[in-house]
Write a protein that binds this DNA or RNA. Structure first.
Lengths: 216, 216
DNA sequence: CGGTTGCGGTAACACTTGTTCACTGACTTC
DNA sequence: GAAGTCAGTGAACAAGTGTTACCGCAACCG
């Protein structure tokens, strides 16, 4: 009926999203710690003071950006790391996934890579928290894998951490590769595949000297 | 021959160094792209305009900082990676080296980790260049290693890259570990050692399936 | 319908910023 | 010892910054 609890909140969400988008674009050429509140509102086309209706500060906006960039990635991870398959094939799939994600959301990836060690504490911590969740999830996924039989919890987590860090490295390599040059991207893919393969080989022989005769 | 060795140039170098030191300290809490020229001169205690006698801009100072932080590290790498020894021992030595370096120059390490993907292009490129030199050097060191017999140039470089990236990851982990808590540092050391060990295992079995019977 | 909520706008505040210019005065050179 | 170099000064500039208080007006609720 006449009850429309939506139209107002919808407008608010819209300009909030506009702020996030504008900030993300501005952040392609600078770090968050130098991004100005006025700069963002100017890009959106609203008054500086309207900013406070959505975020307490630029830091706050940064934390929201972290959520936007990384929050929706968890299911993606689970559904890609979990399914079994021949090692080589899983590697190719993971790399393809990363490349596709960087292509689809380059600004988000750049933002994360930049602010992971950046100058704004709350943002840094938000990223670390999300990455910690990733490693935990990857660790769980690895635990349910046949090749992880006999692995200690500790070792599984260190391997997961290795994988997560490697993901980020590969993603930022794709960022640096000029988007126009397919051969540069191909080079990145090749090196990344080899590195993952080497890690995989290490994983297969990890328990070799511990008395446990490696299965099959 | 010149008459005076240069009490004047010495003074200049001194304030130049003071500028670098002050900037580095200020950069512990923010990124380079938000560091102001006046902020630095204020910290040193000189007039803002005097800054231009030493650097064209803050970017320029940043590039100089990269040189200061990474330039002197090349010999250190060579003398630590090259000498042979049992795998486990080399790993321990490498980790100890990194931990010691982070302890001795935390601000430098933080600066590099932060600006590696930071918002200032010339600085980013200067860092990438130095890191590329590192990988090349590590690659050469690896080439002269008995365990690298039969390895292609390409594979050696990808392994070197893996090691260099791992170094940086470990360094930044030490940074994040509270300096006051030895058990946190110990945890970092343990995980780092395991990761390097896993990479090492992968390295030993890298050529297993290629027909070359990797025997000693 | 009348009253309240709340997004966005305007004006102003007290600073801070990079850069210029002409200058001083200790060191350097002839 | 005179002449010149040049690190550092001080004032002034045109912008830029975050933040406050207040207003208007459309959307909401009873």
């Amino acid at each position: 009926m006449s009850h429309t609890p939506g139209i107002r909140q919808a407008r608010k969400q819209k300009t909030r999203q506009a702020l996030l988008d504008a900030a993300l674009e501005l952040l392609e050429g600078q770090s968050l710690s130098s991004l100005g509140l006025r700069e963002v509102t100017r890009a959106v086309g609203i008054a500086p003071t309207a900013f406070y209706r959505h975020f307490r500060s630029v830091e706050d906006l940064g934390v929201a950006l972290v959520e936007e960039a990384l929050g929706s990635l968890h299911p993606m991870i689970r559904t890609t790391v979990s399914p079994a398959g021949e090692g080589e094939e899983r590697i190719a799939r993971a790399i393809e996934l990363i490349a596709g994600h960087v292509d689809a959301h380059p600004a988000h990836v750049r933002f994360i890579a930049r602010e992971r060690h950046g100058g704004v504490r709350p943002v840094r911590e938000a990223i670390q928290e999300q990455l910690a969740r990733f490693t935990a999830e990857v660790g769980e996924a690895l635990a349910g894998d046949a090749e992880s039989a006999g692995w200690s919890e500790e070792d599984l987590l260190m391997l997961a951490q290795l994988y997560v860090d490697q993901m980020l490295i590969v993603a930022s390599l794709y960022l640096e590769a000029p988007a126009s040059s397919p051969e540069a991207r191909e080079r990145v893919s090749k090196v990344a595949a080899r590195q993952l393969r080497l890690i995989h080989v290490g994983r297969r022989h990890w328990l070799d000297g511990t008395g446990a005769a490696g299965g099959r």
